[in-house]
Amino acid sequence: MLGKKNIKGRIGFAIAILLLVSFSLLPFAQILSTSLKHQYDWGNPSLIPQSINLDAYKELLGLTEAEKVEIPAAIQKILNNPKLSAEKKQAIAAKYTANDNLFPFGKYMLNSVIFSVGAASFSLVFSVMGAYSISRLRFKGQVVIQRSVLFVYMVGGVLLMVPLYQMAMNVGLASSLWGSAFCLFLIYIVQTLPVGMYMLGNYFRGIPFALEEAAMMDGCSRKEAIIKVVLPLSLPMLATVFIYCFIIGWNEYLFASVFLKQYPEFHTLPLALQELFVSKNAIWDRIMAASMLTLAPIVICFLLASRFMKGGKTDGGVKE
């Protein structure tokens, strides 16, 4: 801007930036730090662990050998009693070897991936179609649809949880495992579709109409013009929208808790982490490691998305 900053100004600027970045990153640093600390180290305010502890990660990622649990000697004696049937023996042994500390992180992650990638894919397809229609084609009722999408975009899930749950109940979906999963899947599509419509609608409006017209003069039908010209040009934005929708699904907790709480095998990561946190197995390093692993895909996606965002590709085709 006007006038170069003097030394004092520069130092002040650097400090402000430092404070801002620290404020933004501190909780992340805390998560990473605690996930790597041994228990005796937790109370230490320093973010750097005294020694690195990777056990939590190993356990979550299933890298540790299933721990051989020693069966107490007394029990062993009972088991050795030949009068006991084999079935009973097994039951007793299972009771003592059962590792209910286990947190099947991989399974939860897979659930989360299935729900969020699946919903994001459907959403992307529908929103490409819908957004193209309302931003490019001329027909009556377009404006009403456009406004409704914006309205719907801003209605939060909280307002819908009761009626959606009751609707699922009425049609009998909420009482079965697969029905509930199906409902949740649909709901994730609904939650992401308006976002996709909104983002893509704005993007399509920015693509010069003349490009499609040129394609039509070159002999393409409308559909071919969309597939051969509009979509290739929108690739970065399509990726961004997909990632955005993916993030929404990945982060969602409310509806997952409403529909899936009673079906642990279908828990998504947010639900599973919350359950873990309130359970007796809550150990900080394990929770933090799980948080870290939940964060990681999002951070990677975000970095990818911000790379994509920069590559505006329409420049050059049309002079403004």
Binding site: L211, E213, A214, A215, M217, V318
Partner: peptide, 30 residues
């Protein structure tokens, strides 16, 4: 009759070249 079936070639004011295609691909697209 839709534009693509009228057998017309057109030069646009802002050129309307396909930004994602090379010059060669632009020219031979039709």
């Amino acid at each position: 009759i839709e534009p693509q079936h009228r057998n017309i070639a057109m030069v646009f004011q802002n050129y309307a070249l396909y930004p994602h295609k090379s010059v060669r691909e632009n020219i031979i697209f039709a």
